[in-house]
Design a binder for these strands. Structure first.
Lengths: 339, 339
DNA sequence: TCAAGATATGTTACCGGTAACATTTTGTTC
DNA sequence: GAACAAAATGTTACCGGTAACATATCTTGA
């Protein structure tokens, strides 16, 4: 199990170590005969180039850093899968880190990645202001944002058209005849939270409906957040007939709250989620949700970052905005209206 | 944004580069005065040691490889989170790779990790025979298995007592009075599949019940697998009264199949899953499931592998078997019997 | 006060690749 | 077959750390 080096191979093949290096790198400046001879020795000895030595001398580690809010969240897990598949295909490895959406942890993740020596970083969970990330971009370090973007920096990103998704969902509720539509939105210091809120507002406005402040609650993108917010909404004298949620988790929380108040979905309250994660179709009440191409966002992000890393002077910016699609299930009461 | 090296710092501080190296590595062989002086220069210049150079010379990359079947599966995502948190804490980074439970892809993942230069590898999804992994272990490469173990190699692992989990679940069904208990088990070329099947069989045996071959179906650990298997079971003349599933996904598939056949859970068929993933409590029928400490398995695995990596001659094996716990919800009909 | 040992600092070599340039071999043309 | 260009191969240096050993400085006690 001894580890061989370039020079070992060279000696065994009776050539200089540079010739071996050239063979390894498919440099055309090697004759076919020599190439074959060297290749044979390589396989015979089972020689494997030392990744660390190579990374050292080339200043490239073939490592991508991925900062997610929480990898155990299925949404992030799916993005991660998209990222990893594409990275693998392109010869890169992915190291990941969970930021828990905290600026401090995000900064710690960045430091950690930098120490590890990644060639570029992908972020899925930046807030609209994220100093650690903005600094990185300012320094010219390869960065791609996925899912959420920064307010200031107009940099490479791959996101969903959240405004449109939310607009479409609200329109759908309006078309079903609901007038009293509430929104439990994710925090608007995230672009996902803000844009989804704006889409909802615009749809109301376009239908000449006033938005009622007591119908809009901002909370965390979690079932707990949705639960608390829904308890408040459902306790209102003038209870909303429909609730649009900032993501599916919030909607799951709403289901819990409705069950707790003895209300049924969609008869008493219609419900729409966002993201269409795998479980939207498996939850107690099958959830209507705005579907986005999660896996694809990840794989596109990798293409962009590798592009950025490998071309020396990339003088343009990649901005990819994918269109979402409303997936209609029982929670919005569509089937009731069809009858 | 120029990158400084050890020697730059040394020159600026008026010492030799080795002194700087010693300061960096907290080597006690540096006087307090010098240490302070050097430290000051380091912060002034914003010097950061070159991770790649360090990895090269120390032959350690502080990188752990994680091979999961599919990171987008919430079970794996949660293990991953446990792994990453602990690794971060211990100064390691984690690169991951999805094997899709295929031997070929597993081998490709291993190669990929080796090329990247990881210091050790964690596997969550080995089959009972997994040549690529067995070879790695035989060569003395640091490996820890999580969740599933190999049949042959008796190596470091962290698993759940799957036999006990399944035994307990079956016992529970028996206690509720069910006699016709079927099992839709995961493939038994995985230790998780095999051990869970054995637990079920043992529980029947201990209750002097014959196991009926038509009541045991092996399938993939997926909702699709569960769906197909359940269709077959529910179409039997002598339909089972209860079904124990190899994991929660299989159980979700059973729910779909039951719905399709117009049968209700638990009134017509009782149902128990395995793993108690986050959605067990949120599915259409709240699922009784065998809960295992997923996150903890991950973090324990990291402790073991770091131990293996950092101690030169580890002469003992780590075997951690965690006890599962049955979480009772509506799908097994417990509430019906309580009345 | 000075030798001996401990402590602090410095010198040199090396890890295993790649870049850049030097040299040798081969091939082409007249 | 001489002359020269092109192709193939070799030589040397270097990347930025750490190990091992050498040297210088500081203690301490007889």
């Amino acid at each position: 199990m001894k580890k061989y080096t370039l020079r070992d191979v060279a000696k065994a093949a009776g050539v200089s170590h540079m010739t071996v290096s050239r063979v390894l790198n498919n440099n055309p400046r090697v004759s076919a005969t020599t190439r074959e001879k060297v290749q044979k020795v390589i396989t015979e000895l089972g020689y494997e180039p030392d990744a660390r030595a190579r990374a050292f001398v080339t200043k490239k580690s073939q490592l991508l850093g991925l900062v997610v809010s929480d990898i155990s969240n299925p949404f992030n897990a799916e993005i991660s899968r998209g990222i990893e598949d594409k990275a693998f295909e392109m010869g890169y490895s992915v190291i990941f880190c969970s930021s828990d959406e905290s600026p401090q942890r995000t900064e710690a993740c960045v430091k950690h990645m930098l120490r590890t020596g990644v060639d570029g970083m992908i972020f899925t969970s930046v807030r609209l202001k994220e100093p650690a990330v903005e600094k990185l971009i300012a320094e010219g370090f390869p960065v791609v944002l996925v899912n959420r973007k920064l307010s200031s920096s107009d940099y490479h990103y791959v996101i969903c058209n959240n405004f449109l998704g939310s607009y479409t969902a609200t329109k759908h509720l309006l078309k079903l005849g609901y007038k009293k539509i509430a929104m439990i939105s994710g925090y608007s210091n995230f672009s996902t939270g803000l844009d989804r809120l704006k889409g909802y507002q615009k749809a109301l406005e376009d239908n000449s409906l006033l938005q009622r402040s007591e119908y809009v609650i901002e909370t965390s993108f979690s079932a707990e957040g949705g639960f608390e917010a829904a308890k408040a909404l459902l306790a209102l004298k003038d209870r909303p007939e429909a609730i649009l949620c900032g993501n599916d988790y919030i909607a799951f929380g709403v289901m819990d709250a409705a069950e707790g108040s003895g209300l049924s979905i969609p008869e008493d309250v219609a419900l729409i989620g966002f993201d269409d994660t795998d479980f939207a179709a498996r939850s107690r009440i099958k959830l209507t949700s705005v579907s986005q191409k999660i896996y694809e966002m990840g794989s596109i992000a990798v293409q962009i970052i590798v592009d950025t890393i490998e071309r020396k002077n990339l003088d343009y910016e990649h901005k990819v905005v994918l269109n979402p699609k409303l997936i209609i299930r029982e929670s919005c009461g569509y089937h009731l209206h069809k009858k």
